[in-house]
Nucleic acid binder design. Structure first.
Lengths: 242, 242
DNA sequence: CGCAGATTTGAATGCAATCAACACTGGTGG
DNA sequence: CCACCAGTGTTGATTGCATTCAAATCTGCG
């Protein structure tokens, strides 16, 4: 039985800042408006206003921008527990869209309730800001990835990041994870063509770095994969060290 | 005579959130530790801790990541008035470096003082979070730019963005601005080689979109430049509209 | 079964990187 | 004062990674 919506959120927040029991209790009181989105449908359209933030409960959610001539750039991926549009708390229009890659269950958390909770609980407010900062750190990692790495390294890096993030959220096994993205979508996330992604994946398998069956990807040689990706997981750390 | 350090910061913050006179007054009380950095030197090294945030007073500052084999990705540019490492308030180690492109004057603002001010003035705290969000929006724009646009469009987009941002800060003329970056640095910002940037710039001049003398770039045809860049300035808006 | 979407393969093209000179600039020191 | 030098910009030639186009499987599903 999957964790309840509120527990999902708590798991995520706890990866960002220490949460006391009082704060956890407070999070459990947040009102949620449940919603279901079919695969490949927008959850929030670019330019739209909304009065709540979107908590992912199940499925895979992503942000993207569409440019001229059907070109699309996927900007980030979001797993259960995460809140992709936290920034809607501060900016009233998104400059990009948020959509579901798979069928996804989400919950809208009213901005007013979030603000009240942030006001009442410093630890919660802290976690929210840290969530925004980890998002930004991921953007930077993607920028370096797309701007300065080969296609082979880019895809390897994406796999390393997804694996690390899913592990933290308790969504991945010890050495494999399910990533229900088509090769075209992987291409849109990495600034590549789908044909080339196909070839890169074959090479990653041939070299023994990964072994994929359908959308379940096994990390066959984690060290080697991190090596070719130039992956340093520290950018994903939300909480400060001692 | 250039604006005072505090006024520079106020100009920037005012582009992000409305600031009352009381808040401006409070900003003026922030203690600043002035510092000067020669061109092409780090201001903060990757992984370093610091107890203050870095306000840019003059010169051009940028963030970058270094990958294997001397490859470098420039992540963002920062002009006078901006604070590139605001996130150091929340995360104690940077995952990238901050450096000066030109000789730059900066001021370190102690975290403690910033926190106190944020605590006392909601408008100030708001501006800080919005600054982080606009940074993130710029990352997204760069991601789409590097991931999905041609070299020609990428450079055009960079020029559009820099021009728009400098105008807001009162650092650019009506139709030209000074951008003291070498072609190699423009290349590192756009995931290109310097040779190719050279050719792209020639083409932009040949097509009559820009006219550059040294590092002063004149926007010869703003509409056409925005057109080829696919530039939509809304992502730079910090303040909410009515 | 038949269809649509996804993956795979092959071939050709092209954008941008790389390699290699050369020209231009400003700054330095003899 | 001028020779020298390093950094930058420019140009040409070549290479190669990745795209594009096209078509052939494969897969799941109504």
């Amino acid at each position: 039985m999957p964790p309840s919506p509120h527990e999902r959120l708590i798991v995520y927040l706890a990866t960002l800042a220490p949460l006391g029991e009082r704060e956890r209790e407070a999070v459990r009181t947040l009102p949620l408006r449940l919603r279901e989105t079919p695969a490949r449908n927008d959850i929030v359209h670019e330019g739209e206003r909304s009065d709540g933030a979107c908590l992912v409960l199940s499925g895979l959610v992503f942000r993207y921008k569409t440019l001229a001539q059907e070109r699309r750039q996927i900007l980030s991926l979001h797993f259960a527990g995460e809140v992709p549009d936290l920034e809607s708390l501060y900016r009233d229009r998104l400059d990009h869209s948020i959509a579901a890659l798979t069928r996804a269950e989400t919950a809208s958390i009213p901005h007013a309730a979030l603000r009240a909770l942030m006001h009442a609980h410093r630890g919660f407010a802290d976690a929210v800001v840290r969530a925004l900062l980890v998002d930004a750190a991921i953007y930077r990692a993607w920028l370096a990835n797309i701007g300065r790495r080969s296609a082979y390294a880019r895809v390897a890096h994406l796999f390393c990041e997804v694996f690390a993030r899913m592990r933290k959220l308790g969504l991945a096994d010890a050495d494999s994870f399910r990533l229900p993205m088509t090769q075209t979508e992987i291409a849109d996330a990495n600034g590549l063509s789908s044909v080339h992604v196909n070839r890169v994946l074959q090479k990653l398998r041939r070299e023994g770095l990964i072994a994929s069956k359908g959308d379940v990807h096994e990390i066959a040689d984690r060290a080697a994969l991190a090596q070719v990706a130039g992956f340093d997981p520290r950018y994903l750390d939300g909480a400060s060290e001692a």
